[in-house]
Design a protein around this nucleic acid. Sequence first.
RNA 1: GGGCACGUAGCUCAGCGGGAGAGCACUACCUUGACAUGGUAGGGGUCACAGGUUCGAUCCCUGUCGUGCCCA
Length: 949
Amino acid sequence: MIEKNYQPADIEGRMSLVWEDARAFRAGRPDRRDAKPFTIVIPPPNVTGSLHMGHALNNTLQDILCRFERMRGRDVLWQPGTDHAGIATQMVVERQLMERQQPGRRAMGREKFLERVWQWKDESGGVIINQLKRLGASCDWSRERFTMDEGLSRAVVKVFVELYRDGLIYKDKRLVNWDPKLLTAISDLEVQQVEIKGSLWYLRYPIEGKTFSPDDPKSFIVVATTRPETMLGDTAVAVHPDDERYRPLVGKRVVLPLVGREIPIVADAYSDPEKGTGAVKITPAHDFNDFEVGRRHDLPQINVLDKEGHLALVDNEDYLRGLPEGSAEFAREFHGVERFAARKRIVERLQDFGFLERIEPNTHMVPHGDRSGVVIEPFLTDQWYVDAKTLAQPAIAAVRSGRTRFVPQNWERTYFEWMENIQPWCISRQLWWGHQIPAWYGPDGRVFVAETEEEAISHALGYYVEQEVITSEQGREMALDRNKREGFITRDEDVLDTWFSSALWPFSTLGWPADTPEVKRYYPTDVLVTGFDIIFFWVARMMMMGLHFMKEAPFSTVYIHRLVRDEKGAKMSKSKGNVIDPLGVIDEYGADALRFALARGAAQGHDIKLSPQLVETNRNFATKLWNACRFAEMNDCAVAEDFEPANAKETLNRWIAHETARAMREVNEALEAYRFNDAANAMYRFVWNVYCDWYVELAKPALTGADGPAKAETRAMVAWARDEILKLLHPFMPFITEELWEVTGRRDTLLALSPWSVEPGALPLDVAAMSRDAQVPDVLLTYAANFADFSAEAEIGWVIDLITAVRSVRAEMNIPPATLTALVLAGASEETRERAPRWSEVIRRMARLSDISFADRAPEGAVQLLVRGEVAALPLKGVIDLAAERARLDKEIAKADADIKRVDAKLANEKFVANAPEDVVEEEKEKREVAVARKEKILEARERLKDAS
RNA sequence: GGGCACGUAGCUCAGCGGGAGAGCACUACCUUGACAUGGUAGGGGUCACAGGUUCGAUCCCUGUCGUGCCCA
């Protein structure tokens, strides 16, 4: 029994358990051993995360694909899991410690702190997984993985070691993006450029050998800078080689104000003559461009900041080298000053001595850390890098050759653009939570990279014995006795960028580096579904790692979806307060409603605008489906065992079979092309506007009439079409369809595991064309021919048109629904005379008619309608306003005239007749004939009206 | 500055070479035997603008204006 009211909350809770008990989503089910696998890896959400609309969309789309393919018989693996999210998680736990006024991370020490993070993960890390289950995600939950679990960590170590041995990972001292708040390096991608209204300071650098005077422009060179505080680390001034103004100065030296360091004026094309003064200060240790200039001119790199962004001058050998007497005092004065305070004080000091020429307002881009929000400091440190340029080559080739394609395709351009200009990937992070880098340092700082400490020590001992740093006797003792080698090598403190482990996700989750059956069966995956914001972070890196280690691209298709926005199109954000919480919406309207709303909006290349009201609309659709199924149940509709829809005799039943086949085709084609919105909208229309509005209504007479073959067939067909609807909708609305499937019949299997329908839709429904194609098997030809039932379409189409026309004119004439009118079919054809009695009951009910009769001509003063070229008359003499009816007909005539005129204009155009394809010309001629016939009939009707008055 | 999109009904969007479409909102009417979380009907658009290609342009091309995003 179907409950009277649709209550999503009850159904969804129960169905989750049903699926779980049946292990419905397990990959490798015995019954699918021979099936083709279908694999998707979930973009692993952060363990710290909770489900937001972006997740809801992303996972709804993946689930639609997985359920679709599962029903199509594939052995589906949707691999779930979570990401350890280095910085984010470490921050969450640190914040928690602070809130609870417990000792901080550093006070705790690394080991204790990590224990604490794991504890947090065990308690809170499962939240998002449960939320995904509430959404209906059909992941194989038994295979859930975590980027820091044992197996995945093994993969990370192996990859690091192999890439190191291949020379694709290396350690280098260069400028990195340094986050002075989080005290770690971050990658280029984690840096956000923010437009800042700042200033451009024009500084006078005195030329060596001249007496500096602010009034004597010959005694100095003016440089413009946005970061005056870094001038303490300047090691040159650069001018453009072609810049005539400065040519005589190249090769000369300037004396750095306040500092006293003598630095050269160099010619370098980096300096832009149009910008500022055309002369720029060069600070190789604090600016990426200056770093390159410094390399070209062999300039020293002087770092004047510490890790927290404070000036570090005292005991700074690089800074103090070669400075004149008395500079130590200045160093002491400014040592330890925070960078922005230092900026202010240095500018003041420069001004005091006449070195500041002027200040201009200047808007420019300033790098910020995406996690910390503070200004990023280009900082000279030792870090580990991946040679991304080398790894990118096969990844570019895979997309170029089409082995991996992007949907929509225009993302390929973005991908190529980035991949072709890829920079070395900084992978070391000065954090504790993450995969610690498998590198150890010997007493002299030499690096030993190995999968385990044992392996590292053996390499180290071998090396140092060979180098005669230790004797072979010492080496042997240390190898045997753990205590004796204590502290001989020390492990690198840093951990890897979180994205390093996510890059391995498509194969590490399958058990790699072990040679598991899963790796063989499920790699490469079929499709990756993700947002454009992580193409670089994640997609590109999976491509690189997958191709390098598996020799095959990790997925054949990358489907890129867009953002979910609020109803006004604004990005959802906590600060704007316009965030729609998916769980709140699920509580109120059900997961199916949310999923369907998202799917219907998921047009390629478009953001999705979502409002609670939109979800409500889709909940209403679910209710409609619910009630349609109740109707079927109340009328004892069930699919008989030997029922074959293609053999239906009743016209109406043949018609709905045809329409159902069309819906199947639409859904199949749309989903195969990743057009989720087209598939969902096709079902929305089919269920509501075809099945409910017309089929069910037109079927009522048969269902409530006398028993017999027609009634039996109609009952079966109502049930058959319902079952097809449940199947076709299941990928989008899994809960309600599974529930209805269960309660509406004796089922062999869960709907989630039911076979997708035979696919007449996979064939063109142009039967004539099909029969010419020798490739099409006879069985399918028969099937398609039976479904493409044009005669049924003609008859039911006539019924629908007639009812619609009568309703329309009744509304226009303000005839209240309670008033029943008679209908006279005037001059009806043989066909119509046959059809009308068959449909008289429904037509009367739906069009509010008292009686249907035939006549040669429409009665006097009747309202006359044209239905498929024939006149249907409502004898309403005395009821209606004749003048209004005349006006209505005049409008109709005018419309027909306009049509005729338009076509005539075309046909009169010789060039049109000569150039347009024959069938188009033919079509126009037909249109004209139809319009002319129409006009004649209406003219006749108008004449009859004249007679009446 | 470079790149990618997008301007179609009040809103959200579909259509993408041959008669302007859907959903929501709006208006009017209706408790009819699955459903008022419903039914029926209706109003509403020089398809951003200007050129070009074409027998024919909302659709293809160019430009302009406007909007959004990504990268420097």
